[in-house]
Amino acid sequence: MHTMWKGTISFGLVNIPVKMHAATENKDVSLRQLHKECQSPIKYQKVCPVCDREVKEDEIVKAYEYVKNKFVVLDDEDLEAIKREQTDKAVEIIDFVKLEEIDPIYFEKSYYLSPNEGGTKAYSLLRTALEDTGKIGVAKMMIRSKEQLAVIRVYQNTIVVETIHYPDEVRHVQDVPNIPDQIETGKKELDTAKLLINQLTSTFDPEKYEDAYRNDLLALIDQKKDTAQVTTAKDKPTPDNVTDLMEALQASLAKAKKDKPKPRQPKRTTKKKTANE
């Protein structure tokens, strides 16, 4: 399993060297966009609308838009300084709470933690202490240049980090439109709803749930692949230097003809009439 990050978990005076691994993976089927005419993959470019040209990576800076079209530019040095200050703290457990005290709306992404060199004993100590007390640790850590709030808990004998949202990242339910007030329901309807819930109640078994759409999409792709309904992107045409040279010469010749000054017409002279004429 790929190691995403190495650091330490600290609580009190205990420091545990750990490695972090992604606990989940995205199984979405990624579809590419092709040009219908030639079946070539579409490219996306970073273009400056003012300069009207593609911008290279070394020409791009980061900025925060605090009002419309007003930006505060942030240098890489500034961001790195903040990142280093936070990284030094690693994963610092600041509180221990009960898991049921945190609503699932706060949970974001899961990561497995394994002990790094010399951390096996301390890792086992924290794992056993969490299991025996029934508590989870609330911690702060840096992931991808962002300070994350997280919880440390045990899942199937493995310590897991669950990143969670900060309170100001969870939208207020008062902002949700058209939520009805408490409406009195009839006893018969309520009893029937409860009966239905009881009949459908079972023990949670994640293995029985599957992504039907993804399975159907993969089956469709295999079917088309087996029946030769495939396409191959065309290679980018190689410039023909001879043709390019001929076109350039012809264009230059046409331009030269256009720009060539017209020859001057000889002035017509008129004879002065003599007295005898």
Score class of each variant (00 low, 15 high):
M1W: 00
K234L: 14
T24I: 10
V67T: 14
E57Y: 07
T269E: 11
E117C: 03
H35C: 13
M246V: 15
K260P: 07
R268I: 13
S110A: 15
Q265Y: 00
S10F: 05
L200N: 07
E131K: 13
G137L: 05
V176W: 03
F96E: 01
L130N: 02
A248I: 07
T203H: 04
V97C: 06
E184W: 06
T201K: 08
G134Y: 04
L245F: 13
I16C: 12
K208T: 03
Y64E: 04
T185K: 15
K43I: 11
Q223V: 10
M141I: 08
A256M: 09
N26M: 10
V29S: 10
K109W: 04
C51V: 05
A233Q: 05
K258C: 04
K46Y: 09
K188E: 15
E117P: 08
V154H: 02
E131T: 09
T24N: 14
F107V: 06
C48Q: 01
T133E: 09
E101D: 15
T163K: 06
E57V: 13
Q148G: 04
D235W: 00
V173S: 14
D78C: 05
N157M: 06
L196Y: 05
P41N: 07
A248N: 08
L31F: 15
A81I: 06
D240Q: 01
Y64C: 03
V97T: 10
T227P: 00
K62Q: 06
A228T: 05
E77C: 01
F11C: 10
K146W: 11
D191R: 14
P167C: 00
S124F: 09
V242A: 11
V230L: 09
T158F: 06
K98P: 11
V73M: 01
L31R: 03
K236E: 14
M141A: 13
I152E: 01
V154N: 01
V176Y: 05
I221Y: 08
A129T: 09
C51L: 12
T87P: 00
P239G: 04
P115A: 07
F107W: 04
D205G: 04
G7M: 07
A254Y: 01
K27T: 14
V154Q: 01
Q86L: 12
T203R: 05
Y66T: 03
N276C: 01
F204T: 02
R268F: 01
L220D: 03
